[in-house]
């Protein structure tokens, strides 16, 4: 097999997809759909985003024949979704509206005095590791709730960067935003989660 254009083990998955192997499709759908949905949710409402992701997979069956491995499979799939979403937005004459003005969350900003020093500093240290914290079902449920409440643009940026581990450059290309706007989205989302964990640790409430 020619591995010069794509590294294994992804190379063999791509070859299987090109051959139309249904098990390879099941594996790829499970692996890549959550990230594809995160991309689509940046641009569209939930049901339109799910439809786009489903349509994309049907398109992939033919398009994969032309995949040359210049980017990774994940980035290629995410770009297909982004392009479809942008076409859809163009067809209905809509744009994604996002506020990139402030990087500090207003709730956190209120905790500093006029001189810029902490008025209400963080009291507790989050001692436990992420894996230990995640064993707490109540905290996990609370995280779900707060992740769902994040603006779509923040959540998509966060999912692609943290969960799907894209490089900043790829996230910017897929979401059509510049690097400093991506930094604002990530920082805003992380602060929300920081505030949530802090409240949870102090009060046990979500």
């Amino acid at each position: 097999m020619d591995t010069s254009t794509h590294p294994d083990p992804q190379g063999s998955l791509i070859e299987d997809l090109k051959r139309g192997n249904s098990f390879a499709y099941k594996e790829a759908v499970r692996e890549y759909s959550p990230g594809m949905l995160a991309v689509a949710r940046f641009y569209l409402d939930h049901s339109s985003a799910e439809e786009i992701v489903q349509d994309c997979w049907v398109t992939v069956i033919d398009a994969i024949q032309k995949f040359e491995g210049r980017s990774g499979l994940k980035t290629w799939l995410h770009r297909i979704v982004a392009n479809r979403c942008k076409n859809k937005l163009r067809s209905i004459n809509r744009e994604v509206a996002t506020d990139f003005s402030e990087s500090l969350d207003p709730e956190l900003a209120d905790r500093f005095n006029a001189k810029g020093r902490w008025d209400l500093p963080p009291k507790l240290k989050f001692h436990e590791s992420a894996d230990t914290l995640m064993e707490n079902d109540a905290l996990s449920g609370c995280l779900d709730k707060h992740l769902s409440a994040l603006p779509e643009t923040q959540r998509s940026a966060l999912m692609l960067y943290e969960a799907h581990q894209h490089k900043s450059e790829d996230v910017c290309n897929i979401l059509d935003i510049n690097a400093s706007n991506l930094r604002v989205l990530l920082h805003r989302a992380r602060q929300k989660i920081f505030l949530m964990v802090e409240t949870f640790q102090e009060t046990g409430k979500c």
Partner: peptide, 10 residues
Amino acid sequence: ASTDLLKVHA
């Protein structure tokens, strides 16, 4: 720690 938690959870 919140960022690590998000990585694991998401």
